[in-house]
Amino acid sequence: MRRAFDVIGTCMRRAFLGLLAILPIASPASAEPALWVAKSGNATFYLFGTIHLLKPDADWRAPKIADAFAQSGTLWLEMAEGTQGQIDQSFIWKYGKDPAHPLYTKLSVPERQKLRAAAQKVGIAPVTFDSLRPWLAALTLSKAPLQQAGYQGEAGVDNQLLNQAKAANKKVLGFETVEQQLRFFADLPPEMELALLTQTIDGIDAATDQLDQLAGAWLAGDVAALDTMLKGADSAVGDKRLRKVLLADRNAAWAERIATLAHDGGTHFVAVGAAHLTGTDSLLTLLQRRGFTVARL
């Protein structure tokens, strides 16, 4: 279960991307990920959408990003604790395991067979899933093919920024705690939990290609492509409640926090998953509604 939650942000995206057709997005000749600036009074917030898993050789540090980071006194991440995969195992037991109700008892016979086949395909012993709740089984299963393709949590943008901030003695703060993030999944209704696992199993063969395309669009700063992926995937999931829980509600909470911070001024670098900066309920849109001036750099 080590570093099981390096994939947490990716699985949030995959909840929407599970059945979406692959978009033909080429890798950019030079990386230019999207960066925005939001201002209110004497406060400046650089807003950077991240990818939580990347290949170690991905080059994303455009000069404008480096400049914005250097100007910022504080780095804000989705969560500051546990960002590098050091999750308290007690939380995993509390929210992710259910040995009294083995996973196979929650699945139909065909679903059990599909889970077994998917696990074997990515090199995980099927017995590994027996004590896991469906949401944790989905995350664990999602991670394996991405690792095999060379994606690493340690290479994720969040971890790289965290290490850079520590080296520069910048303050690092998080919008959420590890426990809060786990509960986004653990508090899902049982049918949504099972749906997440089913979508993960069905999409196991396409998972790496999907992340390749997502990473390509992100590196190119192709916000329109990212938005198209997410919009199309909403209908693929068939239940917009998941988007509300994992994106919309969190965006609203973060916008409120940023609006409060703005009263004290200062310059902040906000790095959150790229999906939070696309769509009509994005963090950018919510800040504009609160009176911030928002512009892409």
Rank of each mutant, 00 (worst) to 15 (best):
T50M: 07
H52W: 01
H52E: 10
L53Y: 07
L54F: 03
L54I: 05
P56I: 01
A58L: 10
A58N: 12
D59H: 10
D59T: 08
W60V: 05
W60L: 02
R61T: 10
A62Q: 13
P63F: 07
I65W: 08
I65S: 08
A66V: 15
D67W: 01
F69G: 02
G73P: 09
L75C: 04
E78T: 02
A80P: 09
A80G: 09
A80W: 01
A80E: 13
G82H: 03
G82A: 06
T83V: 12
Q84N: 14
Q86K: 14
I87M: 12
D88S: 07
D88I: 02
S90V: 10
F91E: 06
F91M: 12
I92L: 11
I92Q: 01
I92C: 00
W93N: 12
K94S: 06
K94D: 00
K94E: 10
Y95W: 14
Y95T: 03
G96F: 02
K97L: 15
D98R: 11
P99A: 06
H101G: 08
P102N: 03
P102F: 09
L103I: 09
L103P: 05
L107Y: 05
S108F: 00
V109Q: 14
P110W: 07
P110N: 10
P110K: 06
P110G: 00
E111R: 03
E111S: 01
R112H: 04
Q113E: 15
R116M: 15
A118I: 04
A118Y: 11
Q120I: 13
K121Q: 14
V122F: 01
V122K: 04
